[in-house]
């Protein structure tokens, strides 16, 4: 029978990997989402076609399947070795959530009223200036609440990395459970609480963004 501090200190060994995967995945998926989202509103048919294909493939299949697929296919099929399984996990999570989040980028850009584009053309702004100064600033505030929601989704997704052998929170939880069966309720409850504590700042961010995106916008 293990005590609570005992369980806690075992689980804490996995915190670093969970946070590392979380932060790296957030950075990579944000970059992917911006690039893919902007590509999808491009006027070049080839660019929109390729990114559309990417988005549909990754949204249409399941993250857990992609995770397994990458962890076997990268070394086995393409002979790519990323050095650490952390990068395999980050790659799978980022490509998956990058695809989902690119849809918010695209949707928000398209939701900026057409009059804004027409006005910037009338003001003789270049295509880049129009995007940089007129469209993107208005689109970003629309994206942020949904973006916050996806950050929480990414946190939840990091729990899958233990399935490909990474030593994250859940991995240590399973290890502890396998030797102390009667403690399993405490182990998993503690794990859930730890994930929730990590999620709290993300929840606060989302709520803040929700109220911010409504501020100063005409109703209806």
């Amino acid at each position: 029978m293990g005590s609570l501090p005992d369980i806690f200190s075992t689980l804490m060994q996995g915190l670093k990997v969970t946070l590392l995967v979380l932060v790296l995945s957030i950075i990579c998926s944000t970059i992917i989402a911006l690039v893919a989202g902007l590509s999808r509103v491009s006027t070049n048919r080839l660019v929109t076609g390729v990114t559309g294909f990417y988005v549909e493939i990754f949204r249409g299949t399941s993250l857990i399947v992609q995770l397994f697929w990458f962890s076997y296919a990268l070394p086995g099929l393409f002979n790519i070795h990323l050095g650490s399984d952390i990068w395999v996990a980050v790659l799978a999570i980022s490509l998956n959530y990058g695809a989902y989040m690119s849809e918010i980028v695209r949707g928000s850009i398209q939701a900026v009223p057409a009059g804004q584009t027409e006005a910037s053309i009338a003001l003789n702004l270049s295509k880049f200036q129009r995007m940089r100064h007129i469209i993107i600033p208005q689109a970003v505030r629309m994206m942020l609440p949904e973006y916050g929601n996806y950050l929480i989704q990414i946190l939840k997704a990091t729990s899958l990395v233990s399935l490909i052998g990474l030593t994250d929170l859940l991995y240590y939880g399973n290890i502890y459970r396998s030797t102390h069966l009667s403690d399993s309720p405490t182990v998993y409850l503690l794990l859930l609480v730890m994930y929730f504590v990590i999620a709290l700042p993300l929840i606060a961010f989302t709520k803040k963004m929700e109220s911010m995106s409504k501020k100063g916008v005409a109703l209806g």
Partner: peptide, 23 residues
Amino acid sequence: AEFIRSTPPLVQLFFIFYAWPVI
């Protein structure tokens, strides 16, 4: 509800499958 929504379903699944019978 917020707690259930923002914690991983995989851990919840493990809780129900592995921990519930032990309670």
